[in-house]
Amino acid sequence: MKTINMKINGTERQIEIDENERLLDVIREGFHLTGTKEGCGEGECGVCSVLLDGKLVNACMIMAFQAADREVITIEGVGKDGGLDPIQQAFIDTGAVQCGFCTPGMILSAKALLLKNPTPSKQEIRRGISGNLCRCTGYEKIVEAVALASDRMRNPEQ
């Protein structure tokens, strides 16, 4: 066992970890943040996507100790002040959510994309979410949601 510090969703926390635990295990079992999912355990599906120091990562591919003294944002930390992030709202409004299992990872992926590129083209959105699988929607509505979120973030009065 080893104790590490981690800033998770804006709060500094201390947590005991096993050396062989993944960041995903610490998020789900240590912090009980079950919005981050496990779909394949080998970095293929993207349902465990989180932001690590602002960069998009698969939490199943990072060892817990690698996240020591760093900042992690999960789906539970995306909204501000109890409200929804514009990306979350856009996912609801466009019908981009079906079974919902890919949704947290998709939203984190979209978040990482819009942080880097606030005005992505359709092609850039597709590329931005290319590490996240969805088996329900066919992606069209998800791309639409990210475009809508980008638009609303630039024109908040709408």
Partner: peptide, 19 residues
């Protein structure tokens, strides 16, 4: 029509069996 479970699914609150 907005789906009734949309909000819990975009916030990570929806509980799947493994959760």
């Amino acid at each position: 029509v907005l789906r009734v479970d949309g909000h819990t699914k975009v916030t990570g609150g929806a509980k799947y069996p493994a959760d």
